[in-house]
Amino acid sequence: MMPPSLRLTARNLIINTDPGTLLFLIGLPSFYLIVLGLMFQALIPNVVFDGRSISYAQFLSPGVVAMQPFIAGSIGGSMLWSDRRWGMFEQLLVGPFHRIDYLLGIIYVSMIFSVGGALLMFLVSYLLTGFVVHYLVNILLIIVVLLVSSILFTSLFLVLSVFIRTIQTYNTVTMFIFFILDFASSAFYPINGRTPLGLRIVSYANPLTYIVNSVRDMMFARLTGSDLVYVGVVVILSALFFVFAALSYRKAKI
């Protein structure tokens, strides 16, 4: 007998795997990689990373991989919103599940979307830039970071979808957060001594920075002690957000 949370995960996958969702999951990061990565190459021919000279598109690749948990999380939040709007939330709560199973069902499907999307991004990145992650262990570490990050972002968007009433507001808030977190992180540019202090503070208050940094180090096989700190920050934030989401979700009106 399949555990209830996995049955709900399967249901979420079946119901939500449509072309629109996949386009959002894959299309947007691919667009960043293709348009920004290749177009900016004319302006930024090379970036020095870990003493090596790499192309800007290669520098950007970890950024788009690390975006996957964020995008998958926003899809997870919209699942709760949609279930509440179309009556399935109440229907599932009178079904053979614990309330927490429903929450886990969404988080698990976000993890699947996140890792699946990231693997596709590796492929896109390889096709565009010839970039390869050399060690299997690094790929596994990246997957662990992406899974933990999925808990963080899905929890964040679940909280939003509990309190936001209309899908228009949900989409607007999602896009707003997306731009803030994306552009105030190390996804597009390195955060270093030349970054203005204010922006540096914002960047280090941004969880995406830690995810991008650790994924980038893992992709370039440059693991250091600071990666432990990055991963630690992501784990702590994910745990906090999960607790916050579980508490907020109890207040979700049917």
Binding site: M1, M2, R7, L8, A10, R11, I14, I15, D18, S82, W86, G87, M88, E90, Q91, L92, V94, G95, P96
Partner: peptide
């Protein structure tokens, strides 16, 4: 329920998914 509730899928898929949820 009194209010409508369904998944964004065909009639048949709604029934299949519901059956799967109930194992």
């Amino acid at each position: 329920l009194q209010n409508e509730s369904f998944d964004f899928a065909s009639v048949e898929r709604n029934l299949k998914v519901y059956g799967m949820l109930w194992d």
